[in-house]
Structures are given as C-alpha cells and as structure tokens.
Design a protein around this nucleic acid. Structure first.
Length: 228
DNA sequence: GCGACAG
DNA sequence: ATCTTGTCGC
C-alpha cells in the first residue's frame, strides 16, 4: 500500500505538540465517498521489558467480515507513552505494517481516539492523514470531553463534547459492558463512524476489526519474542 | 497548585 | 498497555 512519507519521529514533547497543532487543520470530516467493501483494524502491543513494539493490521470484507489479509510488523521502540502523544509511540510500527499491506481498505478502525483528543488529532486521525484513508477512533476509555449517561441498550449512545463541540460518541456496543469512545478520525462523519462500528460488532464489546487486530498482534508478539 | 490522563 | 488466578454472572 502507498504510504506517505512520515514526519521525523525523534521529537521532543513540544515538537510533537507542534506537529499535531499544524496537522489538525488538514483533517476532513466529510461523508465517505466510496461504498465500504473492505474494512481494516489495526493494533499495537508493546513489551515492558523488551524494547520492541509489534503491530498487526487485519483486513475484512464488509459487511460479511471475512478475513482476507493479515500483516504484522515489529520495530524498536523509542518514544514513551504520554497521554495525548500516543501517535508518536504507535504510528511508526503501524506504518511499517501498512507499507506491507496489499489491499487498500475503505475504512480503518484504530484502538485509540480520532478527533476526541486535546488538540483534535488522536491516533486514528493522524493515521488517516498519513494514509490518506477514512479512519475511525475506537477507544476503550476516555481521553477528553464530557458526556451524559449512556443508554443501557446496545446501540445507545451519548454525545462526547468539548468546548461546545461534538467530538465523538460514547457508544454501547454490547449490553451490560462499558461503552466505547467512538470518534471520527479522517474523511468520515461521526454518524458513519457509529454505523460502521455497530455493523462490525459481533457480540463482543470491541468491533471485530480492532478485536481481531488485538488478538493477531498478541499471537505475533508471542511467536516473535519466543523465537528471539 | 490540583486533578486528569487513548495505549 | 502490562503484571496475573480465580471467580462470579449472563
């Protein structure tokens, strides 16, 4: 897959923030232009003791969700986890996987925020800009924003708001489980994001793309680290 | 100054 | 995220 040249990643905190503040203005939240035929999920796993990070990208047909491709990658990790700067820790190894991907997904789900971010550019949004593809942020917990009570039934949601702006939705993807924090990443609307997440949920809290990417990256990490 | 804080 | 066993509930 074609992947745009990446920014220098060896950045200080201030430089990383500057990159985000400059890039946020390129994010577009227009409706999807293509019919969704391929949906992908991506996730990263890091080892506390080891100095490597691992990533997996899985591609499914939509809406049948038949797996057609899985790509893994590993990379030496150099950036720490800092709330708000997750992109600079996880994007490098994700990019390495996307560069090897043969299919071009119509939309990609990420384990993190889209625009529901202090500077409006979470991992999903940043990856959307790098890849030039529609992306959705599917986070398990809140980073920023306020919201009301989330309806108990599956599909129920409460809007996530910040500074008077709607930045996402707190969505119940399954009954009796904590809701997910969904936000558009790039080239997609919140409404479409919610629809795609719900249509890719298969009885679990996480939508299949990110759930399968999570399982895949853990399988990959075990095999890779045991084989040295 | 204090609390909050994706993975 | 990671470290970790069993256990309670639908």
């Amino acid at each position: 897959m074609h992947v745009k040249k990446l920014h220098p990643w060896r950045l200080s905190y201030e430089e990383a923030v500057r990159v985000q503040e400059q890039l946020r203005h390129k994010i577009r939240l227009d409706p999807l232009t293509e019919q969704i035929q391929l949906v992908a999920g991506a996730d990263v796993s890091c080892e506390r003791n080891n100095r490597f990070s691992y990533s997996s990208v899985v591609v499914f047909t939509f809406p049948d969700l038949e797996l057609i491709e899985e790509i893994n990658a590993s990379l030496e990790e150099d950036f720490p986890y800092i709330p708000g700067l997750l992109t600079f820790r996880e994007a490098p190894v994700l990019i390495k996987a996307f560069q090897k991907l043969r299919n071009t997904p119509d939309v990609i789900l990420f384990d993190g925020q889209g625009i529901a971010h202090p500077r409006g550019i979470g991992l999903a949004s940043h990856m959307g800009l790098i890849l030039g593809l529609p992306t959705i942020g599917c986070a398990k917990t809140r980073l920023t924003g306020k919201h009301g009570t989330v309806p108990e039934e599956k599909g129920g949601y409460s809007l996530l708001e910040s500074q008077g702006r709607t930045i996402g939705a707190v969505l119940r993807t399954r009954e009796r489980v904590k809701p997910m924090f969904i936000s558009p990443g790039h080239k997609i609307t919140l409404k479409e994001s919610i629809r795609i997440v719900l249509e890719t949920c298969r009885g679990y809290r996480l939508p299949e793309p990110t759930r399968q990417a999570h399982l895949a990256v853990n399988r990959f990490r075990i095999v890779k680290s045991e084989h040295f």
